[in-house]
Amino acid sequence: MTDKKYIWIEIGLVVILIVYIIFINGFYSGGTDKSIAEVSKPVTATLKGSTLSKKTNGDAVKAFGFELDKTDGIMYYAADNVMDVSEVLIVKLKDKTDAPDFEEKIRERVTNQENLYKGYAPKQYSLLQNSIVASSGNTVFYCTSKTANAIYEAYKNAL
């Protein structure tokens, strides 16, 4: 191999590296431009036949203490039965820097729920312990459910 060919390989690799970094930047900053309705569709599809029913934005505010005017759409499903802690929440934020605050509020609720159900319903407590809270750019996701992982997958694919 001549000396010149080496330099071209190296430059090629640097280009691939830069392209790759740009590609994963999208991955790490996350978020979505889709509307809450679009993102919700595949997620609610996984909830068909479950014990969860759609709740209003007001219910979400009551449960989590959100500031409604920071949001650009909420999808909230919860169980009607008090002894069932399963719930799914997707919030689209107007400003992605609010994500940590919203995550904090969600985690607070999970902790409160955990304290409530700890002694009485170990199975519910266990579900809460395995709950998923994750934010991705301007969307925040939360789910307590036996099938939390599957629902999370659906959400990730929807973004």
């Binding site: 000396d3 390989i9 690799l13 790759y20």
Partner: peptide, 19 residues
């Protein structure tokens, strides 16, 4: 992927320097 690119790059550099 970063590590693989780095390995390929530096391997090439080594061969280039020797050549």
């Amino acid at each position: 992927v970063l590590m693989v690119i780095s390995i390929l790059f530096n391997y090439t550099v080594g061969r280039a320097m020797a050549s």
